[in-house]
Simulated assay, not measured.
Amino acid sequence: MTDKPIRYLSDETLDGLGIAPREIADAIEAALRGKAAGRLHVTPKSSLLPGEGRYMMSTLAVGNDEDLTVLKTVAVCPDNPAKGLPAINGAILVLDARTGLLLAVMGANWITAHRTAALSAVAARRLADPDSATLAFVGCGVQAHSHLAAVADAYPLRRVLACGRGEANREALLDAARQRGLDAQAATPDEALTEADIVVTSVTLDYTIAPFLDARLLKPNAFAAITDLCIPWTQDSLSAFSTVVVDDLVQERTAERPMLPADLVSGDLTGLVGGEIEPGPTGPRAFAFRGIALGDYAAAALALARAEATGAGTPIGTR
């Protein structure tokens, strides 16, 4: 045992570290290369749907470069907002991979939001039009806000369109876009698809939702970041995508309920970053996200390093 303190980093503390979206994307790219080289080991995400719209999941990754083990558990509880609570809550444990000793406990909400947007950003670097100016959202919750920050950090955005069932969430997202100096307005789903250069879908993870998005409406050079298991997309329209990349092929192939037909999947992020995937020359492209331990690992490792360098966090004991 040592007398070095275990560090607690709340979501508020993590937000205050000042980590830019592109820093997380860069960390994820480095992690993807580490995974390809056998230096980062991950397991497929575990998930449960225990009823009442709840979605429970966990991830596990071990990295030899940083000598860290990162475990995350998250619960999506749709009844929480009515109780004055965030819909998503969870925790992350960071351990020394050589000894198993606990190094830090982190809130999971900030990392879950921003690592998802950073994963989309990694895919977009290779699949989206670098001159993308119009960003559209179908679903206006936490993921929309983190994607707004990530896309605005990397593209010459001028316009934001937002489509969502909750007026309060939609208006909050539009206000956030206007605060960035962007033209922002509400839109129908069809308007969002036909006018966007980049579209982000993040509807509630509920398989009872009737699909209502038609990929055939997208511009030929459009990029779609799909963070909701493809739930809102009509299955017969998905073949309109010339290139579809998932976060992890092994995870997708072993999933009880695949996000989309296997023959439509071009590969995963590891292959995309490694140059193994040649995007289709014409037709819209997509990144479909299920959730991958690598993203949590990269974001948590980056946050811990920044916290240790700045002294951020609260000691909660020694190891």
Rank of each mutant, 00 (worst) to 15 (best):
V245H: 04
L173K: 04
G100A: 06
Q179L: 14
E167S: 12
L238I: 03
I209G: 04
A177K: 04
V76H: 08
G139R: 11
Q185F: 05
R126V: 00
G51N: 07
H147A: 11
V142F: 11
A123H: 00
P261A: 15
R170E: 05
A25G: 08
L32K: 07
I88F: 11
A168M: 10
A224Y: 00
D153I: 00
V244G: 01
I24D: 02
T188A: 09
A210H: 06
K4Q: 15
A113N: 13
S237T: 13
A87V: 14
C163I: 00
E252N: 08
G181V: 10
A305T: 09
A224D: 01
A309R: 06
T43I: 08
R285Q: 02
L193V: 01
I277M: 04
V151H: 06
P81I: 09
A113V: 08
G267K: 06
M1Y: 04
T310Q: 08
T43E: 13
V74G: 01
G295M: 07
A75Y: 05
C77Q: 08
P81W: 11
I316N: 08
G166V: 01
G107V: 07
A172R: 14
R285S: 01
A184F: 07
T2H: 14
A154T: 08
I316C: 12
V151L: 10
D67N: 12
D3F: 12
P5H: 09
R285F: 02
A149Q: 07
R115F: 05
A293S: 14
S46D: 05
